[in-house]
Every structure is written in C-alpha cells, then in structure tokens.
Design a protein around this nucleic acid. Structure first.
Lengths: 184, 184
DNA sequence: TCTCCTCGTTCGGTTTGACGAACGCATGAC
DNA sequence: GTCATGCGTTCGTCAAACCGAACGAGGAGA
C-alpha cells in the first residue's frame, strides 16, 4: 500500500507545512521547543522521531497531528467548475448536484464565511495547487481571482485557483457562503 | 484543543484496536515485530514511542496511522449559525469559521442538495468510514443518523457518520444545503 | 495433583533519539 | 574591509526507547 516509508512521509510533510507557514527551520524548532538539530535531521528523513517530538511540531505548525504522517501529495490536479456530475435522486422532490469530485490526495477544509458590504477582502496567493470552491448561501458576492471576479447569488457555485491573489466582496448585508479550501 | 495527551490517546487507541481484533498483547507484538515489553508500556501510557514503532503497530492492527493518534470522533456534531470559532478578517466585515479540517487521506465530494417537504429521503449506509457534512443554505432540514436526527436552519452545520442509515427531511419549501461526502 | 502453555508485567543491557555547542555559509550594517 | 546576525548542518554526550530474559498469574489437560 504505502511505497514511501513513514519517515520520508514525515520529512516531506514537515518541509511542506513549514514552507506553508514561511518560517525558518530554526524558528520552527524554537516554537516547538525542540533542538533545531533534531528538526534538521527529521527533514532529512534521517531519524525516527518520537511522538512527543512530532506532536510538538504539529502544534507549532498548527496542523492536526496526522497531517504529518499523510501519504505524500500527488501531482496537481484541478477540477474546473461544472465538471461535476449531476445526480438525480430516486425520490422525488430531492436533487443532488455534484459540484466537484475530490481529487485523490487532496485535502479540503470546510469553512463558513460571512461578510458585509465594504472594501473587498483581499486574499494573498496560497500555496501552489490550491483551489477554492465557493457556494453562496445568502446575499450576493463578487469573488474570484483579481480581474476575473464573478458575481454570485444564493445557490451559485464557483471554483477558482487559490494560488493567485483573489478577492471576496460582499454586495449585500448578511452575505454568507461556504468556502472549501482545497490543497493538493 | 486536545485535553488528553497524545500518549494517552495512543494508549487508549492501541487497547481499543487490539480488543477489536481480539488478539493478545503478545500476539500483536509478534505481528508488529516489536518486543511485547514495549507494547505493554505503550498501553500503560508510559513511554514515548517512535514513529517506526507506532507504524508497525498500525500495520499489524490494519488501521490507518491516524486512527492511533487522533482522538475519537464524536457521533454527531452541530455548529449552529453564529456558533463556532469565527476568525475575523483583518479587514472588517468578514468572518471565516472552520467547520471541519480535512483528515489526511480523506476524499471530500462537494454536493448542493435541494428538497421539498414530504417523506424523508432515506440514505443507506455508505462504506465504512464515510462522514457527511451538511450546511444548510435555505429553509429548514431534519437530518442525521436514524433516531438521532437534528433540526437545522440556515447557516447551521452538522456532521455525522454516513456509514449508518440516515435521513434527510426538508421541512420547508425550497430547502437547500451543501453536502460534503467524506470518504476515508 | 503436576505439568505445560500463554498471558501481561518488570528488570538490566544495548541501541538510538534528542540535545547543545560548534561549524561553515550567507546577508546586511557600519 | 570588519562585525553581527541568522541560517542549516555536523558532532559528542546523555537520557530513554527498545529489546530480551525472567517473573508470577491464570487455565487446560493428563
């Protein structure tokens, strides 16, 4: 099942999550309260860390413990909006539309966002391969990569790359949406 | 966030999974290729196992690694509209609430469902490990595992095991929701 | 009863992971 | 130029994780 050893998996995950936070090896070691020599060896896939060590790192990285022992990430695969299959329920009065099938190896964190009219909320580019899914639950939104914003109403769905600068603007009071952050 | 230490979590998980398989401590140690003294101390929450040791145990127990380190999941979790830890943006008038962080190795398919009042939509049990996330966008719903249905209004979020029979009932015309099917 | 087996725990000895100091290498201030 | 700061790596020391052996407890069978 698993080709790569857990140690390599951890080494890759540590490096990936540390890059995501944009902190140095020494800084992360400080935050986690471990010797930077230990962390250096771990990122080199040399060594066999104890649970306490890994736990401290997971806390410092602000990720669930198990994310560090994830199987390695697979190459980037993006599913564009509209590629989902529409599935009709066998029972009447009920429909289910597949908005986006999850690519293998991707992680999707589920958020609920709300906004009020005003200046747009500018989001910096996330790590490469990030995709954002937005489904409006209330009010109207204007969202998307800079220069390619689209306007969305209740029930509308959009997905766009999150690894470029992008914005959210609430156009009506009490605007809400479901935001799914997808990391590959 | 986590009250119990990772070591206790592991100790409990080891005991639970071993009981599930119905094997003795010595037998499990044999299968995992570790000394039974080591395993004995781990189940007593004494010690600080290395990743290799834990990995061998996870393989021998035939469970994903994360099952040994993640605290047990609660059956049904509801986050009411406005509840949850909302993170305010640096730019005002914008909040983001993390509903569910994606577990490693999981796949999440994103659906938008609509329903009309009438008989409930009964869903059969999906494959083991499936979790469903539901966030209501419009109207009111009653949903959840059979006998544990909860009523949800706009903005409410619930997640529950999908590997048991469960139902969705729309209580108002034009009810809508985002459904995320999570497969481990 | 006695024997034999397996259970889980406890006890030294060895291996090794974690630590801290020192290293070489960059970059920036003066 | 020199100095200072921070980076990531390497090395020697020490604590501890892991191991194997021995232990007492319980059960099955002759």
């Amino acid at each position: 099942m698993n080709r790569t050893s857990p140690l390599e998996t951890i080494a890759i995950a540590l490096r990936r999550e540390r890059d995501r936070l944009g902190v140095s090896l020494a800084e992360l070691a400080r935050r986690a309260g471990i010797a930077k020599s230990t962390l250096s060896q771990l990122e080199a896939a040399a060594g066999n860390p104890s649970v306490e060590t890994l736990w401290a790192l997971a806390v410092a990285l602000d990720v669930p413990f198990s994310r560090l022992v994830d199987p390695p990430t697979r190459p980037v695969r993006v599913i564009r909006a509209g590629e989902g299959h529409a599935i009709a329920s066998d029972q009447a009065r009920f429909t289910s539309t597949l908005l986006a099938a999850c690519p293998p190896g991707a992680r999707r964190d589920l958020h609920h966002i709300t906004g009020e009219p005003g200046p747009p909320r500018a989001a910096h580019a996330h790590i490469r391969g990030t995709t954002e899914h937005l489904l409006v639950t209330a009010g109207r939104w204007q969202a998307g990569p800079e220069g390619e914003e689209v306007e969305l109403g209740p029930g509308d769905y959009a997905c766009f790359p999150g690894d470029r600068p992008h914005r959210y603007t609430a156009l009506e009071p009490g605007a809400g949406a479901v935001l799914v952050m997808e990391y590959v």
